[in-house]
Design a protein around this nucleic acid. Structure first.
Lengths: 132, 132
DNA sequence: CGTCATATGTTATAACATAACGTGTCGCCG
DNA sequence: CGGCGACACGTTATGTTATAACATATGACG
């Protein structure tokens, strides 16, 4: 089997980069199937976990879905999720996340990982309905 | 059937208040079963959704689980989740969340709901292993 | 060349969540 | 008072997300 794992990772990354919205693990699986008919969920999840560890994708915890990362600073990204069109914006906010850590640290909590997601309506969708 | 729904809500709230760790919807279901043998998942999810709307419980998106809320300010809570013992601390951080909103607003995004969760190790667990 | 450690593939199932439909309750209007 | 319409709740069934457990392939090393 050798390096099939890494090949899956790059294939998954391509798929996510080509998507204009978050994809679930099973969405990715479905896109993988044509070229890899016998692929199974654990393979996809392993590839997603590895890519996430390497800082190449974000997992959207509140959506159970994934997007390719476009940040310089993967660890300090804030994700703005449009509940209307499903698009996601990445914003880098190192200061805010530092504040968050120090806040937690006040009670002796050692932060290792952050989940910062904002749900709302993106500017494009908001323009479509300025009044209501 | 009348008010059975609200009765379920208060029973669910009691269960969550009595728990010292986050409970999944199915954990709650299991605790409801003895007194309500025929209860089904949608009933539990409806009760949880209603309690969440009312600001009485938090949903932990990164855990797919729920805790009772002890905050004054439910909307502006930050949740610190110990990956070691599973305990969760609620911290109120209205300023931080205001900053978060204005950050998102810079690109025209209208925030409606936040998910701010920090994973790490709580002070109690950290004391247990000061070196490693 | 054997065997051990590790990564990957595969099967099966566990855990989480909701769609869709049936049924009871209540208010409203005749 | 009785029927009927709206809505909430219960129930069945199923869809979606995730991982445990085991099988198999690969490569390192003696």
């Amino acid at each position: 089997m050798g390096k099939r794992g890494e090949e899956h990772q790059s294939e998954v990354l391509m798929i996510l980069r080509g998507a204009d919205r978050p994809l679930s693990a099973y969405d990715v699986l479905a896109e993988l199937r044509p070229s890899n008919p016998r692929i199974a969920p654990p393979t996809v999840y392993r590839a997603l976990a590895a890519l996430s560890d390497r800082g190449l994708i974000h997992r959207l915890e509140s959506l159970n879905a994934f997007i390719a990362c476009h940040c310089d600073d993967h660890q300090h990204a804030v994700l703005s999720i449009c509940d209307d069109c499903g698009s996601v914006e990445e914003t880098e906010a190192p200061e805010l996340l530092t504040n968050l850590e120090s806040l937690a640290a006040k009670s002796g909590f050692k932060a290792a990982r952050h989940v910062v997601e904002v749900h709302g309506v993106c500017s494009t969708c908001d323009d479509g309905k300025p009044v209501a």
